[in-house]
Amino acid sequence: MTLRSAIGRLAVIAIAALFIVVPRSPSYADPSPFDTLLGSWGGTGEIRLDKGRKERLKCNAYYTGGGSDLGLAIRCQSDNYKIEIRSKLSYSGGRLSGNWEERTFNASGTATGTATPSKLSLAIKGGGITASMLVNYTKASQNVNISVQGVALQGVRIALGRS
């Protein structure tokens, strides 16, 4: 073995040891804001209509997916109204995007917004509707507030707990 090949081998061993000994920076993925929501929820709320009319609601919500994807279904019913909202959302870098539909009134459109580990904030457009939806949540409870412009339905407020 020549001096040159011995130095070459030593250099290769030193570089390999450096990769083994030097700790690598951990790479952390964005934590999903959706994981806390997953599962079934139930509760009550109120539908607000034009001219100050209000009705009590009984509601169920279901969240599926996780990671960067969330499917949601919220079903509410009062004595005179039925609401069924469905949405599929994607999360990336704190931003939300996706689609929504309200099955009772056959309306659909897009949803965009932001997410944190305790709040979703959405702008909803389409089907002649412009609305905002705010969901504040913990592991045990959530509050959903939907405000609508331009139609007789002015909004929905719902308080939910784990089913």
Rank of each mutant, 00 (worst) to 15 (best):
M1A: 10
T2L: 06
L3M: 10
S5W: 10
S5P: 01
S5A: 07
A6H: 03
I7E: 07
L10Q: 09
L10S: 09
A11M: 03
V12T: 09
V12P: 00
V12Y: 09
I13Q: 06
I13L: 13
A14L: 12
A14C: 13
I15S: 13
A16S: 11
L18Q: 08
I20F: 12
V21E: 08
V22S: 10
P23E: 07
P23D: 07
R24F: 09
R24E: 06
S25E: 08
P26I: 06
S27R: 15
S27D: 11
S27G: 09
S27Q: 13
D30L: 15
S32N: 12
P33L: 10
F34M: 11
D35C: 14
D35E: 15
G39A: 12
G42W: 00
G42F: 00
G43K: 01
G43V: 10
T44Q: 04
E46I: 07
L49D: 02
G52A: 10
G52N: 07
R53H: 14
K54V: 11
E55M: 02
E55L: 01
L57N: 10
K58Q: 15
N60A: 15
A61V: 03
A61K: 03
Y62S: 15
Y62M: 13
Y63N: 10
Y63M: 09
G66E: 04
G66L: 08
S68V: 14
D69T: 15
D69V: 14
L70S: 07
A73T: 14
I74F: 03
R75Q: 11
C76P: 00
Q77L: 06
S78Q: 03
N80K: 12
N80P: 03
Y81A: 12
Y81G: 06
I83D: 07
I83C: 05
E84D: 12
R86A: 07
K88P: 00
K88Q: 11
L89G: 08
L89W: 05
L89D: 01
S90H: 07
Y91V: 03
S92G: 13
S92P: 00
G93T: 10
G94F: 06
R95D: 04
L96T: 04
L96Q: 09
G98H: 05
N99G: 14
N99T: 15
T104W: 02
N106H: 15
A107T: 15
T112F: 04
T116N: 09
T116C: 09
S118C: 05
L120F: 02
S121A: 12
S121R: 12
A123G: 11
A123N: 15
I124C: 02
I124N: 03
G126W: 02
G126F: 01
G126P: 00
G128E: 05
A131I: 01
L134S: 08
V135S: 02
N136Y: 01
Y137N: 05
K139W: 11
K139Y: 12
S141C: 04
S141R: 15
Q142K: 05
V144I: 12
Q149H: 11
V151M: 14
L153E: 03
Q154C: 02
G155P: 00
V156N: 02
V156I: 13
I158K: 02
A159V: 14
A159H: 09
L160R: 00
R162L: 02
S163D: 04
S163R: 12
